[in-house]
């Protein structure tokens, strides 16, 4: 079946198996930032934007994205790099496995709620599991990032 979408700003057309997930499709297109961390729609690692909304690419059929805009970390270079570098410099994570999904969803959060409270951050990122950090480092890193963006001094 022919799938046609705007992937990271570029028109993409491909003949695909009808039952293919969006995750498998994106990997086949070279979007290696998109990773799979579970089989149960629980971990948030595979987060991408479907028409600007964060979704679990492992749990949605690629055909559902027919005619849609799909964005992965590869397509959010500047935004993702700025936030990702800041978070890394903060030492906010440990192994970094959860990082691609967390960055995608944090960017979705900043777009939806530009100045979120700590509680709003926790709630928005509740679907991004991290086995190492205990979430406190990530929360601190995000709050510091937001302060820094507002011209604050903490870095």
């Amino acid at each position: 079946m022919k799938l046609s979408m705007i992937l990271n700003g570029r028109k993409t057309e491909e003949e695909i198996a009808e039952g293919m997930t969006l995750y498998d499709f994106l990997r086949s297109q070279g979007c290696s930032s998109v990773k799979c961390g579970c089989e149960t729609s629980n971990c948030g690692l595979c987060t991408v934007f479907l028409n600007e909304k964060p979704v679990l690419s492992c749990s949605v059929l690629a055909m559902r994205a027919q005619g849609c805009h799909v964005d992965t970390l590869e397509g959010l270079q500047e935004e993702a790099k700025e936030f990702g570098t800041f978070i890394a410099n903060q030492g906010a994570e440990q192994c970094g496995f959860c990082n691609p999904g967390m960055i995608m969803n944090a960017i979705a959060l900043f777009r939806e709620i530009p100045d979120p409270t700590a509680e709003e951050i926790k709630e928005y990122l509740a679907g991004n599991l991290c086995r190492c950090s205990g979430y406190e480092g990530q929360l601190r890193g995000i709050l510091n990032f937001l302060d820094w963006k507002k011209g604050g001094v903490r870095e």
Binding site: S41, N42, G44, T47, L50, K53, P54, V55, L56, S59, V60, N105, A108, Y124, L125, A126, G127, N128
Partner: peptide, 9 residues
């Protein structure tokens, strides 16, 4: 219920 990305689907 799970997370925002889940509830968007």
């Amino acid at each position: 219920i799970v997370g925002v990305q889940f509830r968007n689907l």
